[in-house]
């Protein structure tokens, strides 16, 4: 994926947030970076709104409603790619 060193840190931070916010009642789930949150059933649609709010406030990204898709927010991989693409340099 050609991820930068900064991106690796970003991945760890996003994963830590997702685990803390959404996986604390799912200790049996071993979340892989490509796993889809919806398919695993660990984040509901309102949970995605919380995830989007976190990304907006943490990285200063304005997210349009049409961007709130599984492609952008549906997995750790998707999140990292979206934030890398959109955050202010």
């Amino acid at each position: 994926m050609g991820e930068t060193e900064v991106g690796t840190g970003l991945r760890a931070k996003l994963r830590a947030y997702v685990e803390e916010a959404f996986l604390y009642l799912h200790p049996d789930v071993e979340l892989r970076d490509e796993d889809q949150f919806l398919e695993l059933g660990v984040i509901d649609s309102l949970g995605f709104v919380e995830l989007v709010e976190e990304v907006q406030s943490r990285y200063g990204i304005a997210v349009d409603a049409l961007e709130i898709t599984e492609e952008n927010f549906g997995s750790i991989d998707a999140l990292v790619a979206f934030v890398e693409r959109r955050r202010p340099s």
Binding site: V49, A65, I68, T69, E70
Partner: peptide, 12 residues
């Protein structure tokens, strides 16, 4: 709600 475009549903 947001339009049913296939994006996740959000509310206004």
């Amino acid at each position: 709600r947001s339009a049913p475009t296939g994006a996740l549903i959000t509310f206004s």
